[in-house]
C-alpha cells in the first residue's frame, strides 16, 4: 500500500470522520484518498479555501467532539501554525500531517527533513509542545496514524505526524489491522448546544497574567506527563556499538542499510531511530552514551535534530553530523563510507 493511502486508511479506521485540507505536493494523495473514503464511511471531507481555513475547520470539528485531521506539506504547515497554537491553547485533539518537502520558501517537492525545528519547537506562537511522530516504514505510518488519534484524545493535544515525500510515495506491503482498544475519557468539554446543562466556553484568552501563568503551568504539567509517557524509539545493533548513528524517518532507513554494510565488514556500528521527535527519546540516548564512543547524527537537513542529541548526550560523547539537505536522498553506501571515515579517523 502506498504511504499516503495507508495514512488515510489508518485515520478512517481510527474513527476520523472529518478531514479538511488544501492541496499541496507531495501529499495530494492524502486528500484524494480521504475524499473517496469519507463518502463511503459517512464522514466529512471538505477542501478548504486555504491551509489556514482548513486547520480552523479541524478546530471546529474537534470542538464538536469529532476525530478530525488535516494534512499538508512544509509551506502549507507554515500557514497552519496559527491554528496549531490555538489547538494547543484550547486543548483540542487533532492530527496534523506534514509531508516534509525541500525548503525554505517554495523549495522543491523532494523528500526533506528541514522542518524538524518547526515541528518540535511548536512552530506557532506561545509556550506549548506537541507530540511529533516520525515513522520510517509504511506499516509504521499506518500504526502511528491510528495511535496518534488516541494520543490526541488522551492528552487533548494536537499531534503531528512528520513524514517526507519518500514516506508518502513509497509503496510497501502492510497489514491493515483495526484500531486497538484504547479507552478514551468522555469528552465533557465539547460544544454541542447547552441542552439541559450549563453553557460551556472554549477559549484561550486569559487577560490576567496570574491566571495565564497558572494555565501555562497546567499545560506544562501535561507536557511533562507526555514527555514521560510518550517517547518511542528503535534501537538496531546498539548493544556493542562503538559508533551509533542517530537518524529518523527516511534517513533512518538508509542509515540502517549502512549499519548492515558496516557490520558485514566487522565494524561495530548501531542505529538509534527516534520515533517520537517530541518528546525526544533523551533517556535512550543518555543510556547509549555510556556505551558508545561516537554518535553520528544523519539528517536530510543541515543539522537540526543534532541539537537535541547534544542536549541529551550532555557532552559525554562526541557527536558528529552528516547531512544531505535540499531533497537529496543518499544511498546506504554513502552513509557506510562516512561511517568508515569516522571509524578510521577516531580510531574506534
Amino acid at each position: 500500500m502506498k504511504g499516503t493511502d495507508a495514512l488515510g486508511e489508518a485515520a478512517i479506521r481510527a474513527g476520523c470522520r472529518c478531514y479538511f485540507g488544501y492541496p499541496i505536493t507531495p501529499q495530494n494523495e492524502v486528500p484524494e484518498y480521504m475524499s473517496r473514503r469519507m463518502q463511503e464511511v459517512g464522514g466529512v471531507f471538505l477542501q478548504g479555501e486555504s491551509e489556514i481555513a482548513s486547520i480552523n475547520m479541524v478546530l471546529g470539528a474537534a470542538a464538536s467532539g469529532m476525530r478530525a485531521m488535516t494534512s499538508s506539506s512544509s509551506p502549507g504547515i507554515s500557514l497552519k501554525q496559527e491554528g496549531l497554537s490555538f489547538l494547543a491553547a484550547l486543548e483540542l485533539p487533532a492530527v496534523i500531517v506534514n509531508i516534509n518537502r525541500g525548503g525554505p520558501g517554495l523549495g522543491n517537492i523532494a523528500p526533506s527533513q528541514g522542518d524538524y525545528y518547526q515541528a518540535t519547537r511548536g512552530g506557532g506562537h506561545g509556550d506549548y509542545r506537541m507530540p511529533v511522530y516520525a515513522p520510517a516504514y509504511v506499516q509504521e505510518l499506518y500504526d502511528i496514524t491510528m495511535k496518534s488519534f488516541d494520543v490526541a484524545d488522551l492528552y487533548r493535544t494536537p499531534v503531528m505526524i512528520l513524514g517526507d515525500g519518500m514516506m508518502g510515495q513509497i509503496v510497501e506491503p502492510i497489514y491493515l489491522h483495526e484500531r486497538p482498544d484504547v479507552e478514551i475519557p468522555p469528552k465533557d468539554y465539547i460544544l454541542d448546544g447547552a441542552e439541559n446543562r450549563p453553557s460551556r466556553i472554549i477559549k484561550s484568552l486569559i487577560l490576567d497574567p496570574v491566571e495565564m501563568e497558572e494555565h501555562n503551568w497546567k499545560l506544562k504539567r501535561k507536557y511533562d506527563l507526555m514527555a514521560h509517557e510518550l517517547p518511542e524509539w528503535e534501537e538496531f545493533m546498539t548493544n556493542d556499538a562503538k559508533l551509533t548513528i542517530i537518524a529518523y524517518g527516511t534517513a533512518a532507513r538508509i542509515a540502517k542499510g549502512a549499519v548492515k554494510r558496516a557490520r558485514s565488514e566487522g565494524l561495530k556500528v548501531g542505529l538509534l531511530r527516534p520515533i517520537t521527535l517530541w518528546p525526544f527519546p533523551e533517556e535512550a540516548i543518555r543510556n547509549l552514551a555510556k556505551k558508545t564512543k561516537l554518535f553520528l547524527v544523519f539528517e536530510m537537513s543541515t543539522g537540526q535534530m543534532i541539537d537535541d542529541v547534544r542536549l541529551a548526550v550532555e557532552g559525554k560523547v562526541p557527536c558528529e553530523f552528516y547531512g544531505r539537505p535540499g531533497g537529496v536522498v543518499p544511498i546506504p553506501q554513502e552513509i557506510a563510507r562516512i561511517i568508515e571515515r569516522y571509524w578510521l579517523q577516531k580510531e574506534l
Binding site: 540502517k256 542499510g257 544511498i331 546506504p332
Partner: peptide
Amino acid sequence: EEIASPVASS
C-alpha cells in the same frame, strides 16, 4: 530482507 532505501542510485 527489509529494504533500507527505496531509492536506486545504481
